[in-house]
Structures are given as C-alpha cells and as structure tokens.
Amino acid sequence: MMDILLAATTALLILGGAGFALVAAIGLNRLPDLYTRMHAASKAGTVGSGLLLLAVGVHAGDLPTFARALAGFFFFVLTAPVSAHLLAMAAHKVGYPLYAESVRDEMKDYDKRI
C-alpha cells in the first residue's frame, strides 16, 4: 500500500512537471513580446523542471537523494529570477520594444531616477 502511495505521488509530480513545461512552451509561442514570454519561460519552466527533480528525490526514497533533489530545486528557483531579471534589464536598456498594447512601462525613466 505504501509503495503505491509513493508511486502515485511520484507520478503526480512527474505529470505536474511535464504539464508545467508544456504550458511554458505554449506561452513562449503564444505571448506577444519578449517581456511577457519571459514570464512563461522563467516561472512555469522553472517549476516544471523543479517538480521533475523532486519526483526523482521522492522516487528514490532515501534521504540523501531527496536532499540533493531539494537542493537542486532551490538552486533553480533561486537562479531563474536572477537570470530573467538580468536579461529583461539588458533588453530594456538597449531598447527592445514592448508590445504595442502594453499600458504601462515603469522602467521608462529609470536612468533619470538613479
């Protein structure tokens, strides 16, 4: 009974991770500009790969492996916003355009404020 529960948890994590990756890929293709695509790629994509790593940790069933998987998950969750922020900052500073129907650009006078 216990191993079926463990397998069901693992399967749920696997399918959830794959689903998040698929949602991220669809968002990457459907969203209109760079900055909105970044939402899909760096949030849903990171959660997708992180859930799959957690599934490995749960499936292995011993504490060291689970701790490594958890460490990997936290590593991805911590680094994805940093890289996405750097990339968005660089693209905005260089002048890549927002979507034409964007209503607000809070970074537009950033250089004057600092």
Binding site: G17, A24, L28, G48, S49
Partner: peptide, 9 residues
C-alpha cells in the same frame, strides 16, 4: 534558457 530547463526535466 527554457530549453535548458526542459533538458533538465
């Protein structure tokens, strides 16, 4: 970047 995430999966 997203591709790297998928390969990790």
């Amino acid at each position: 970047d997203m591709l790297t995430g998928i390969v990790i999966g």
